[in-house]
C-alpha cells in the first residue's frame, strides 16, 4: 500500500517556472536521500513533462508527493493540464513522434527514466501524467 507522506502543488504558467520547479523537485529528492543518478533521472523526466504542459497547454499544475510503500520511499509527480489533450496516446509514446517542433523524446524518454508512468488524456479536456521514482529504484 502506498502512503502519501507529504504533498505540495506547484502552478506552472511560464518558462521560468521550469527551473524553479526542478529545484523544488531536487529538494524533495534530497530530503528522502535519493542518489544523484536517480535524482537526475527523475528531474530530467519532470523537466520534459513540465515543458509539455507549457508547450501544448500553456499552463497547468504539478503535484509533488513523497510516498512510502513498505520500506521504500519515493517521489510521485502528477502533471495536470486542461490543454487540448492527446488524440493518439500510443503514438505520442513512440520515440521520435512529435506534433510540435521537437525531437519527440519527451514522453517516451520520461517513461524510460522513471519506475512507474501513467498517462491519461481526453481530447478537449486535458492530460494528466503521473510518474513515480523510488529512492533506490
Amino acid at each position: 500500500m502506498i502512503v502519501v507522506l507529504n504533498k505540495e502543488s506547484i502552478p506552472i504558467d511560464k518558462e521560468q517556472d521550469v527551473v524553479l520547479f526542478r529545484n523544488r523537485v531536487k529538494e524533495y529528492t534530497i530530503k528522502i536521500g535519493m542518489g544523484v543518478v536517480n535524482q537526475t533521472k527523475l528531474i530530467t523526466a519532470a523537466s520534459e513533462l513540465v515543458r509539455n504542459i507549457l508547450k501544448y497547454a500553456g499552463k497547468g499544475t504539478v503535484l509533488i508527493e513523497i510516498i512510502s510503500s513498505g520500506r521504500q520511499n519515493g517521489i510521485r509527480l502528477v502533471f495536470s493540464d486542461k490543454g487540448p489533450g492527446i488524440s493518439d496516446v500510443p503514438l505520442a509514446m513512440k520515440d521520435g513522434f512529435s506534433t510540435g517542433k521537437s525531437l519527440g523524446l519527451g514522453l517516451p524518454g520520461a517513461r524510460r527514466l522513471v519506475n512507474e508512468f501513467d498517462i491519461k488524456s481526453t481530447v478537449g479536456k486535458g492530460t494528466t501524467v503521473t510518474i513515480l521514482k523510488w529512492k533506490n529504484g
Binding site: V37, T40, K41, T44, D95, G109, A110, R112, L113
Partner: peptide
Amino acid sequence: MQPAVAITLIELGL
C-alpha cells in the same frame, strides 16, 4: 558532463 547527466541522456534517447 556529469556522469549522472550522461547516464540520463542515453536513457532518454539523446
